[in-house]
Design a protein around this nucleic acid. Structure first.
Length: 475
RNA sequence: GCCCCUAUUGUCUAGUGGUUAGGACGCAGCCCUUUCAAGGCUAAAACCCGGGUUCGAAUCCCGGUAGGGGCACCA
């Protein structure tokens, strides 16, 4: 049975890397019809942000990642919040102590500053408390010193394991340090809690960032000490910026929710992020969640870091937008429409802009001209491609204005037919006729839709008003 | 400082000893066209460097270089 977990610490918002880790863990479980578990790693009392838990729930819901077990969804392996599992860690730490796989350490944080200067570090260094006699330990405790519990890592030997992404990893034990398992405040460290919880929650595959790659041997030593089997490992490369730097909120890199606010569809973001470090082995790039579940393969995850490109996300977002039904697109567009379009048929506008929308936040500048004709220069009436000059534009508008005035059927089709026939009769290119009309109607070099589409969108009077305005500019 | 990991066009990637090194984004051009998009087509653009191994290396080995990560009572 596949059981994976997403185990964020509630320190902030859901960033892109977190989203991908959660997604991969979800995909790996669901691919095998297994369970996906949400666990909150809040063992650092100083770093808990109250808002963060809500952000995690929001992010997962937005992404379409649902968990089978979690803080608010018991599956018999709870509690799923580490701060509520303190007695469990204590119990297991005592087992380790009893078996000699851990020891009490009485050193204060201040006792180690010299060692913390990284280049002073000696390989194979072991804490002096490692060799305290039971009597010495008792004496210290009697003094009232609150100890931490440290893992007793063998000084000799080599620890090795297989990772689904990185393959064979091998580290000499002397490179590993006697890490703290239980802090003096009674909370476990991540290094301890992850092992105890993953085992107790029967996690089969651990999916996490590659920053844990070099401490995984220490975790395996812990599994061994308990006589447990360790899970399979899938360590993930990092997502970085295009300039090679780390993603950082300070540098303005957006979180998952920021991207949604920026007009990206959650499903497009999920699709994009899935492709950052993984590919299906064929040339598909467009995926919805169900397709991802079917196609995902943890053994095809890349080892190298991947740069996050807004450009490509933008394109993929466009693909997702274009794949929406007109009704769905209209529905999600509605909140992005600016004021002043009350008299328009918004559903019709949506149809026109769907294929031209890359992010939902494009919408206001796409449709703004409808509400209010922008200020524009008569130069706009000149266009090489349509063979339009100021002169042809003026003549066309002059000729067309009365025709439109007496036109009753204001549909796109009828208008197009009328103007096309006119062009042919005059021996003009269709473009030469359409260009000045479209320009006068939009006041812009480009617009979502051509002359007759814009006209049919506007009331007849407004269309004629704008055409007369254009004519004035050309007079 | 020590340890671990990584390295194909600007970016995401395919590739597991013999390929004209494939695809995608972006960029440029063309076609289509009622402007712009969308769509179609075309182009430019890559195997970090140096040694091996081999008839033959992007692919295997070694050594550099560069980048990332770890060495917390943070996760």
């Amino acid at each position: 049975m596949f059981r994976t977990r997403f185990a964020p610490s509630p320190t902030g918002y859901m960033h892109i890397g977190n989203l991908r880790t959660a997604l991969y863990a979800y995909l790996i479980a669901k691919k095998e019809h297994g369970q996906f578990i949400l666990r909150i790693e809040d063992t650092d009392q100083n770093r808990n942000v109250p808002e963060a838990l809500a952000a995690i729930y929001r992010g997962l819901a937005l992404a379409g990642i649902s968990y089978d077990e979690g803080p608010d969804k018991d599956g018999g392996f709870g509690p799923y919040v580490q701060s509520q599992r303190l007695p469990i860690y204590k119990e297991y730490a005592e087992k380790l102590l009893a078996g000699g796989h851990a020891y009490y350490c009485f050193c204060g944080k201040e006792d180690k500053p010299a060692l913390e200067a990284a280049n002073e570090r000696v390989e194979g260094y072991r804490d002096p408390c490692r060799d305290l006699s039971p009597q010495q330990v008792e004496a210290r405790i009697a003094e009232g010193i609150v100890p931490v519990v440290r893992q007793r890592v063998p000084m000799e030997g080599v620890s090795a394991f297989e990772d689904h992404v990185y393959g064979h990893i091998e580290i000499e034990n002397k490179q590993l340090d006697d890490q703290v398992l239980l802090k003096s405040d009674g909370f476990p460290t991540y290094n301890f809690a992850n092992v105890v919880d993953d085992h107790l929650m029967q996690i089969s595959h651990v999916i996490r960032g590659q920053e844990y790659l070099s401490s995984t041997p220490k975790y395996n030593l812990l599994y061994e000490a308990f006589g447990w089997e360790h899970p399979e490992y899938i360590h993930l490369p990092h997502i970085i910026r295009e300039d090679g730097a780390k993603m950082s909120k300070r540098k303005g890199d957006p979180s998952f929710e920021d991207l949604v606010r920026m007009g990206y569809l959650p499903q497009a973001i999920v699709n994009y992020v899935a492709l950052l470090g993984w590919n299906p082995g064929d040339e598909r790039e467009f995926f919805l969640m169900q397709d991802l579940i079917a196609a995902f393969d943890m053994d095809r995850i890349n080892k190298a870091n991947a740069a996050f490109s807004l450009d490509k996300l933008r394109w993929l977002n466009g693909e997702h937008i274009r794949s929406l039904s007109p009704e769905t697109f209209h529905e999600i567009s509605l909140p992005f429409y600016p004021q002043g379009l009350a008299e328009f048929d918004l559903a019709k506008i949506s149809q026109l802009i769907q294929v031209r929308t890359e992010t939902l936040t494009d919408i206001p500048k796409l449709v703004g001209f409808l509400a209010e004709l922008p200020e524009y220069s008569a130069d706009l009436f000149e266009n090489q491609k349509s063979k339009s000059t100021r002169e042809t534009s003026r003549r066309v508008l002059e000729a067309v204005a009365p025709m439109l005035e007496s036109q009753e059927d204001w549909s796109n089709e009828a208008l197009f037919e009328l103007l096309k026939t006119f062009a042919q009769a005059q021996g003009l290119k269709v473009g030469t006729v359409m260009w000045p009309i479209r320009t006068a109607l939009s006041g812009q070099e480009t617009s979502p839709g051509g002359a007759t589409e814009l006209a049919s969108l506007m009331r007849k009077e407004e269309s004629l008003r704008r055409i007369r305005l254009g004519l004035n500019k050309l007079a």
